[in-house]
Design a protein around this nucleic acid. Structure first.
Length: 286
DNA sequence: CCTAGAACCTGCGAGC
DNA sequence: TGCTCGCAGGTTCTAG
């Protein structure tokens, strides 16, 4: 389940293994993987051929490969199960291989987009003056972006008539946070997921943001140790998930602060994990 | 404009 | 053994 830290690990891998390489050919093996490329898979493959990639960039869960000296970029989103792999050309195709890019050099490796559930995909888009692909102009800066506007974030929370976890997952307010890191940050902040955002004081929202950054940085430190290899890989199964989660996936296990069993609640067609003692639900208001 | 909820997709494991 | 069903959840679209 790639969220910001996992996508950043992939970006670093691409930076090392793909920057500066030119595309010799592109194969689209599943049309759904390029559905955001509205002109279709054939157009995608034809336009990519011959392009040379600059260093990859990321905002939230999106990453993109800008094209050298041209105002467009190959945009990637991993969805739920997407992977970008740099593989030897002779490696057997993965079961869920969706797109293959071969390069015009002698390194012998190719870039593969593999995605079991095809929520993710690749597409080619124009980039604006800021270098951002046009279709993600609505995605907010993420909490690790030096230009993230903390004051604007707080004001937006105060203005919204919604609850705090909904707000954290709203990529137009803050990007890169998914279900896992939302639950982790709320646990660290002792906030219940149904707390109305309008009730958050400035110190509380600042504390929440600090915890979001801390949990993401911790995950990045773990996941980031594996990027220095031939294979650019992401699958959400980094060591961080085995050892370090405090709330997510821990139903029935003791809260690491107070020992109360962690609870799971159905929430928005998914789950929220929380400590019923540390994270008290808000009082119902009329 | 704002917010809530459904749809998209496939593999896996539990239960019968 | 083999079937059904719930679950995983980021993004986009639609309804209200």
């Amino acid at each position: 389940m790639p969220e910001l830290p996992e996508v950043e690990v992939v970006r670093r891998g691409l930076e090392r293994w793909v920057t500066g390489r030119s595309v010799a050919s592109a194969d689209v093996l599943h049309p759904r993987a390029v559905r955001r490329h509205l002109a279709g898979g054939e157009d995608f493959a034809r336009r990519l051929t011959g392009l040379r990639f600059a260093a990859p960039l990321r905002r939230g869960k999106y990453l993109w490969l800008p094209v050298d000296d041209a105002p467009f970029a190959v945009l990637a989103h991993l969805g739920m199960s997407g992977q970008l792999l740099v593989q030897p050309g002779e490696a057997p195709d993965e079961k869920h291989l969706r797109v293959r890019l071969r390069f015009a050099d002698e390194l012998g490796t190719e870039l593969r987009f593999v995605d079991q559930r095809t929520f993710g995909g690749l597409s080619l888009h124009d980039t604006g003056p800021d270098g951002l692909p046009d279709v993600i102009a609505h995605i907010a800066r993420d909490p690790l972006d030096p230009l993230f506007d903390e004051d604007a974030f707080h004001q937006a929370l105060r203005r919204r008539r919604t609850t705090v976890k909904r707000a954290l997952l709203d990529q137009s307010l803050i990007s890169g946070v998914g279900n896992i890191y939302a639950d982790e940050a709320l646990w660290r902040s002792r906030l219940h997921y149904d707390r109305p955002t309008a009730t958050l004081t400035r110190p509380r929202s600042a504390e929440l943001l600090t915890h979001i950054r801390a949990v993401m940085t911790a995950a990045l430190d773990v996941g980031g140790t594996s990027f220095d290899s031939l294979y650019v890989n992401v699958n959400g199964e980094s060591g961080y998930f085995d050892r370090s989660l405090d709330a997510y996936g821990r139903e029935g296990e003791p809260c690491r602060r107070c020992g109360t069993p962690i609870r799971r609640r159905p929430w928005m067609n998914r789950s929220s994990y929380f400590c019923p003692r540390c994270q008290r639900p808000p009082r119902a208001t009329g």
